[in-house]
């Protein structure tokens, strides 16, 4: 058992073991297989479920699957309508994907910390980190994709010159051009970084606390992990929601022409 293997290294070893990804390759070209695998698996789950709902979609009385899918669709659509006033075919599906995918990532956090690594170790996998959102690569991949979209739509809607003008002349007018530029660049770059780090930080800390609880004697564990897990149900949904809403808001800002 993973716990026993690392018992010799003490609590630190246990924690480090749990937070070390399964990696192949060296340096930058290393791949975190567990992150890739679980996020792809969860993405597949999301797509499978919604495809099933979409295939059964009727305007008549909806079934259970369709009902649930439609509830999410309507929820996302309302969010998009609230914060985004342009016309864009991409925003709503993007928001839905982000919400569901991030939620599923975070949901992995609610599995007991040892169970999947245990199964992994039985199959000969030594390291396994099951929550993709505790991997900076996953959160940054998403936020950088969103950032690219922000830049793309900014240029597409406002034109290259319009976007450059916005960067240079706002908010303080042409006389403070360097200051404006600096402020705007920081503002733009802060978007993907804050998006990624917020999600990562919350989930990493949450996972860490689950691991710490798992280190305690078994009779104390439920007392702590149960309320923490309940609290975490709120956190994982909230984080997915925040990521989605901020994406919509940022893209809405990119669409606003001053």
């Amino acid at each position: 058992m993973a716990t026993e293997v690392h018992a010799a290294e003490g609590a630190t070893g246990y924690i480090i073991h749990h937070l070390t990804p399964l990696t192949v390759g060296e340096g930058f070209w290393a791949l975190n297989l567990d992150t890739l695998f679980f996020s792809a698996l969860l993405g597949g789950l999301f797509v499978w479920f919604f495809k099933m709902a979409a295939d059964r979609a009727t305007a008549g009385v909806p079934g259970l699957v369709q009902n649930f899918a439609e509830m999410l669709i309507e929820f996302v659509d309302n969010q998009v309508k609230d914060s985004f006033h342009g016309k864009n075919e991409l925003i709503a599906p993007l928001a839905l994907t982000i919400f569901c995918w991030v939620f599923l990532w975070n949901f992995m956090d609610l599995f007991p910390v040892d169970i999947l690594p245990l199964i992994g170790s039985m199959m000969g996998i030594e390291y396994l980190r099951v929550v993709p959102s505790t991997d900076l690569n996953a959160t940054f991949a998403m936020s950088i994709s969103v950032f690219c979209l922000i830049i793309f739509y900014s240029i597409k809607i406002k034109g290259p010159w319009g976007f450059a003008k916005e960067l240079m002349f706002q908010p303080f007018g042409p006389w403070l051009l360097p200051f404006n530029l600096l402020l705007k660049l920081v503002e733009e770059i802060a978007k993907p970084i804050s998006l990624a780090l917020r999600l990562f930080g919350n989930l990493y800390a949450g996972e860490l606390i689950f691991i710490l609880i798992a280190l305690l004697p078994w009779y104390i564990q439920p007392v702590l992990s149960f309320p923490w897990a309940i609290f975490h149900i709120l956190i994982i949904t909230l984080q997915a929601f925040i990521f989605m809403v901020l994406t919509i808001v940022y893209l809405g800002m990119a669409h606003e022409d001053h």
Binding site: F28, W29, A40, T97, A141
Partner: peptide, 14 residues
């Protein structure tokens, strides 16, 4: 914990 090629893979998946 460092950034690596996983990022690219994740972006493609996304």
């Amino acid at each position: 914990m460092s950034i690596n090629a996983t990022l690219i893979g994740q972006m493609i998946t996304f």
